[in-house]
């Protein structure tokens, strides 16, 4: 993909096409608005500084998600000397889903956000990429640099935990 940062429109187009997906992934992964903002900024700063990054990428979306994930992991590692920041990200209560006028749907989304927050980040990342990015396990494994079976098992564990936690409200809404 030819990206010419001499023309800012290229970067704008890239932002318009992929920022929402990156935002959703980072928000779900970090559970933190300001961290999501910083990481999204870092992704586009790196792209602008080194446009050749995208050249070998066959699928820019997958490449950008991978870059975002790696940056988020780096940030977790840098902060690992402090209090377990990774856990703090996951347990923070925040708005993850869009508002909805339907009160049942709103309560389900609230419960889902809390259940997602309770998942370990690696499971949350796989669940997000499978459900909201509609990626195959092969793509997820490549993106997160994990074995295929690990991606599949993390997804299954994550879904089982979500289902166990959301079963009461889910059954009620059925």
């Amino acid at each position: 993909m030819g990206l010419n940062m001499a023309q800012p429109r290229d970067l704008e187009r890239l932002y318009d096409e992929h920022a929402q997906a990156l935002f959703a992934f980072l928000l779900n992964f970090t559970r933190d608005d300001s961290e999501t903002r910083d990481l999204l900024q870092e992704v586009f700063t790196r792209l602008a500084g080194n446009p050749a990054l995208l050249e070998p990428a066959r699928e820019p979306r997958a490449f950008l998600l991978r870059l975002a994930h790696n940056l988020a992991i780096d940030r977790i590692r840098r902060r690992s000397t402090r209090a377990s920041r990774e856990d703090a990200w996951g347990t923070e209560r925040m708005e993850t889903f869009a508002d909805t006028p339907d009160p049942d749907e709103a309560s389900f989304r609230e419960a889902l956000a809390a259940a997602l927050a309770a998942l370990p980040p690696d499971q949350r990342a796989v669940v997000h990429l499978k459900l909201w990015e509609d990626l195959t396990f092969e793509s997820i494994a490549t993106l997160l640099e994990i074995p295929l079976n690990t991606a599949a098992s993390r997804y299954r564990y994550g879904i089982d935990k979500l289902q166990a936690r959301l079963r009461p409200i889910y059954d009620e809404l059925q």
Binding site: M5, P8, L11, E12, Y15, A19, Q20, F23, A24, L27, N28, R37, L40, Q41, F44, T45, L47, A48, G49, P51, E95, T96, F97, A98, D99, W132
Partner: peptide, 20 residues
């Protein structure tokens, strides 16, 4: 999932352009 805040776009792109 909720949309990316609109006001982020300009700030992020400006900062990225400055970095470039």
């Amino acid at each position: 999932i909720r949309p990316v805040p609109v006001q982020w776009r300009e700030a992020i792109l400006q900062e990225a352009a400055a970095a470039a």
